[in-house]
């Protein structure tokens, strides 16, 4: 009897693992364009490789493009991105991925003469 119970428990665990793996949210490609060599990017606090050198990788609006300067597979939901560019104030922003189709972010070239201006401080 005990063996049958333990067998059932093991089966339940196995089924649970399988169900969990099937229910796991799909990873969605998040492409980040407009980054330049030397730029640093984090997504949810984790550093993401930024491809540098070579020809400039401009966003073309092609769904097949795989040459984005940075691409990370993320879960559906809201993600915090931080971009650090030499000579500019670091900035953070959020991007929300809502379906299994990829989302593309295009970072504009920095206005060098203004990117060092600080963000408005909190009320004190």
């Amino acid at each position: 009897m005990r063996r049958i119970v333990s067998l059932c428990a093991a089966l339940a665990v196995a089924c649970g693992v399988l169900a969990a793996s099937q229910a796991a949210p799909a990873k969605v490609p998040l492409e980040i364009w407009g980054l330049e060599a030397g730029d640093e990017l984090t997504i949810d606090g984790v550093a993401v490789n930024v491809r540098g050198g070579g020809a400039a990788r401009a966003f073309t609006g092609d769904p097949d493009a795989t040459s984005a300067p940075a691409m990370e597979e993320v879960s559906v939901g809201r993600h915090e991105l931080a971009v650090r560019r030499a000579g500019c104030v670091a900035r953070t922003f959020a991007v929300t991925v809502e379906t299994a189709s990829k989302r593309a972010v295009v970072i504009e070239p920095p206005a060098k003469e203004r990117c060092t201006i600080p963000f408005a401080p909190p009320r004190r």
């Binding site: 640093e40 984090t42 984790v46 550093a47 560019r85 670091a90 060092t116 600080p118 401080p121």
Partner: peptide, 16 residues
């Protein structure tokens, strides 16, 4: 854990 870097410029601050 996450790799962090101090590469970004904190820039000037606005004081009281």
């Amino acid at each position: 854990g996450p790799r962090r870097s101090g590469h970004g410029t904190t820039g000037p601050t606005i004081g009281p």
